[in-house]
Simulated assay, not measured.
Amino acid sequence: MKKYDEIHIENLQVFANHGVFPEENKLGQKFLVSAVLYVDTRAAGLQDDLTLSTHYGEVSQFMTSFLQEHTYQLIEAAAEHLTEELLLTFPLLQGISVELKKPWAPVGLPLDTVSVKIERFWHRAYIALGSNLGDKKAYLDMAVESLGEFRGCRVEQVSDYLITAPYGGVEQDDFLNGCLCLRTLLTPEELLSVLHEIEEKAHRKREVRWGPRTLDLDILLYDDLVYDSENLTIPHIEMHLRDFVLEPLSQIAPWVRHPGLGKTVRELAEDLKQKQKK
């Protein structure tokens, strides 16, 4: 994870209506909010220009208004939704840590405060797009548009669409392939679920491995994460073997380094070309 500068807000007092018990929602109580804003302050510091920074006064006002205008039973939910709204509202924020404290929480025991502290960041993911059934371009365009409209996702770049031969030995029509760069607040598993939803909108059927499909969406890279689960492997396990992935990815991210192989996308593409010549 990249190292960012920090702006700290400590123990902002907010009177709000959050809690499991009805009287907490009706009568309200005092909460304390602390936040660490992860930003790049260098330009603002060198030029002494507030417009180049994230205004901690505006952030404090936003947190106060948000917590007073919404009601949650759990402080976990209040912290989660507040953090998301802050990241979506303040464009220079790269990440944020929020601690929401609840003094004198009604647990029937003497204590000063109960708190929840969470940390969330924007992430950068690279997604492979493919289609070889129906209106291929329309399916890819739909995927790009759907991802851009999904809450917590921003499409930053899209490669050209390339016509490529089918992969895997199944006889079928040529593919239209591309890649996009996505800025997202979603976890890898959440992002995978969204991709599957978009594939379902295109009536994707998973009947034959490497077979024809209206829409195929794969997570290639997610920050510099190396991740394995039952449903997902990052980096994509075969991306370095697929020219229909590396060629469009080289258009938008030639310098990005594969966290497992240690080579840039451009280097992986050149390596694959050399292997194919032999």
Rank of each mutant, 00 (worst) to 15 (best):
D48V: 05
Q29H: 05
Y161V: 05
G178E: 07
L133F: 09
Y56V: 13
V256C: 00
Q172W: 14
E24Q: 02
P212V: 12
A43S: 04
L50N: 13
V158H: 13
P166A: 02
L180M: 07
L52W: 14
R266M: 13
E267F: 15
L87K: 09
D173A: 08
V14G: 04
K136D: 10
E171F: 15
T83H: 01
M63S: 10
E247D: 14
D174A: 07
T83K: 09
R183W: 11
T113H: 00
E149L: 08
N132Q: 08
L32C: 06
I75Q: 14
H258S: 10
N17Q: 11
Q157L: 15
D48G: 10
V256P: 06
F21G: 08
Q94M: 01
G28Q: 03
L147I: 01
E199C: 03
E189L: 12
M1N: 04
L12S: 01
A165F: 04
H123Q: 04
L88P: 15
L192W: 01
H236F: 14
D271I: 07
L180I: 11
G95W: 00
S131A: 05
T164F: 06
L133T: 03
D141Q: 05
A125L: 05
D228W: 12
L111Y: 00
E69V: 15
L111T: 08
I118F: 13
L147N: 03
E58K: 01
Y126T: 01
L12M: 12
D173P: 09
L176A: 07
H70R: 01
H8P: 09
E10Y: 15
K273Y: 12
L100D: 06
E207W: 11
P110H: 05
K137S: 00
L261Q: 11
L191C: 01
K26A: 05
N17F: 10
V158E: 13
G168V: 08
K137G: 04
V59L: 06
L180N: 11
E230N: 08
A35V: 07
V116T: 08
T187V: 14
E200M: 11
K136E: 05
H240M: 15
N17T: 06
N25C: 08
A138S: 00
Q29P: 05
E6I: 08
H81E: 14
D160C: 09
Y139Q: 07
E85T: 07
G108R: 13
A138I: 04
H123I: 02
S131P: 05
T233Q: 01
F31N: 04
V158I: 10
T113L: 12
F175E: 11
G262R: 02
K263I: 01
A128D: 13
T184Q: 01
T184Y: 03
G95E: 02
L191T: 03
V194Q: 00
K201F: 05
M142A: 14
K2P: 04
L67I: 04
E238Q: 08
H240F: 15
E156A: 13
Y72E: 15
L37V: 03
Q94A: 12
V158Y: 10
L46Q: 12
E207N: 09
S146W: 11
L37I: 02
E207Q: 11
L220I: 13
G28F: 09
K3T: 13
T113P: 02
D135R: 06
L46G: 01
